[in-house]
Each structure stands twice: as C-alpha cells, then as structure tokens.
Design a protein around this nucleic acid. Sequence first.
DNA 1: GAAAACGAGAACGCTTCCGTAACGATTTTC
DNA 2: GAAAATCGTTACGGAAGCGTTCTCGTTTTC
Lengths: 116, 116
Amino acid sequence: MPVELSATQALTLWHTVSLDQVRIETGDLTLRQMAILLHIYLVPPPHTVRGLAATLGVTKPVITRALDTMGERGLVERVRDARDRRNVVIKRTVTGALYLEKLGDLIIDRGRRLSL
Amino acid sequence: MPVELSATQALTLWHTVSLDQVRIETGDLTLRQMAILLHIYLVPPPHTVRGLAATLGVTKPVITRALDTMGERGLVERVRDARDRRNVVIKRTVTGALYLEKLGDLIIDRGRRLSL
DNA sequence: GAAAACGAGAACGCTTCCGTAACGATTTTC
DNA sequence: GAAAATCGTTACGGAAGCGTTCTCGTTTTC
C-alpha cells in the first residue's frame, strides 16, 4: 500500500523530524552514518565494509570510521567472518534496534500530526 | 488529513531518501543545515539568527556558519533589518526553493514506492 | 608453494564543524 | 547623553569527517 504525500506534507514531515533529531542532542548522527545504520537494519544481512561502501558510493575508510563511531555508542558490532577471514561482518545490536525503533515512532507521530 | 505509517514504512522511507541524499553528492547538507533550511522555507518569516538558534537549541555561531555555507550556494540570503539595524533577516531565494522542491519530489516518490 | 588479488584498517594532511569567549555596531535604559 | 543591553559576527583551540595512499593478514591463482 503506497503512501501518498503532498509536497507540503513531505517537506513538513522532513522538517519536524529533522528538528527533533537536532534538538534531541544525544550527539546526532551524520547523514551518512544514518544511512549506514538504516541500511544495516533494514536490508537482509550479511553486510560488509566493501558492500556498504559500494552501496553508499563512498570510500571504504568512510565506512570504517562510521562503524568506529557507531560502535562506540553500541549501535552496531563487528565480527570477523569465519569462512573468509578477510571479511568483517557487521551485526545488529539491541541498542541499535532500540535507537531505530524510537526514530520510527518519531516519524510515525510526526506523520500523524500532519494536516492539510 | 493525517498520514498513517507503519513502523517499517516510516524507517524504509527514511532509509531510501537518506540513501539518495548521500549518493546524489552535490555536497550534502549537514543535518543541522537541513533543519535550518527547512525551517526558513516552511515557517512564516521573519527569521533571525537568534530566533533560529533558539529554535534549534544551538549557539548563534552555528547559525552564522550554516548561513555562510548555504549562502555561498545561493540557498539563502541575508539582509540587514532596516528598522532595527542590529538584526539580520534571512530571506528565501529561488535556488533554495528549487532545492527543496526537488527534495519534496524525492520524498513523495519514495513514499509512493512503499509497499506492505 | 610463490605470486597476485583482495578486504579491512591505519596513517597522513586537509577541510569543516563545534562551543566559548571576545568584539564592534546599534538600540534601549535611566 | 552615558551606561547597559542586544544582535550578529569573528577569533580561537579542539574534535571529527574526508579522500588518497599504504600496510597487513588472508585467500586465490597458476
């Protein structure tokens, strides 16, 4: 079932959610970090550094650094691949799932409040 | 008319739009810059540095710098207030309106493609 | 099994953003 | 009209992100 939005609704939704994200101030994630996090949790595994770099269209160190930062906050976890020990598999965590659950609730709430 | 989203829909929408934003790579805006830009264009004027700082919950230099960056790209414009010459009024531009129009189209398109 | 290919991370120099603290210009207060 | 308050900006030191290049361990190739 598609979601039909008017131009004003689309931008207002983005506006209110962005504003909340800035204000919440738990050290907001970069746009890239957010994209990586969402990708890990919404697309079926496995996820590797190389794969994410290709998906986002950025270089590998960008992914490594983003995983460093998000790893410190417990949002993701890294595990060496047992079958090919060159690879690192990125794993989801409870903390990360909770973080995105809150974001989802926020978007839903802001969508519900849209009028016009 | 409110917009009803499921948890998966909400996050998938955020995911796809963020991914596009990262990939489009016209020098992506910071989360804060995006919030400022949307605020200027969606909330009735006038907008001042002090007001924006209070709204976003950040310090004034953050707003000044964001306006510098976005001003260079023609997304906003600064004009001294004639009545109180201490104030600077932030003005919208055609370039900025076009930029947000494209973003709106993107969100609408991604919303339309949502299934489940 | 030696050499080439591959994947992730570290090192480097650079750019950009951050908050605090100060500064000039302007307006308000008394 | 002198002093205090207000507004935006600049200056500064520090933190974090960027892409390029390289290093190191691992796997594949021949």
